[in-house]
Amino acid sequence: MMWSRVAAGATLGLTLCIALISAVMRLWPAPWPSLLVPAVAFFFPLWVAIMIICARVQRTLPVWGVLLVFNAVIFLALWSTRHALV
């Protein structure tokens, strides 16, 4: 079952990383395009950390559930503020 949890981290963890980093870039005081490369560089350590944490949690279904909820919340926030993007 460990591989199922790692798979959760690899798939939903990937989209969660994109959502989290996008949110931080948008909230950052500097214009978001100035953070593109640092964001890409930060993405991989964060993604690997999520996969490692997911592997260590003992139950499988909650991992998928929690990641799904986090994804939904952050993507909803990003979607609802998309008009503010310049």
């Binding site: 994109i18 996008s22 870039m25 978001w32 395009p33 593109l36 490369v37 964001a39 990003l78 993007l85």
Partner: peptide, 23 residues
Amino acid sequence: LLLAGFNTLGFDGKLEPKVNMAL
């Protein structure tokens, strides 16, 4: 690939025109 993901999922297609300037 990653920038394409950010463009679609995180920035509503507004990231792509800024990539060249960043790189």
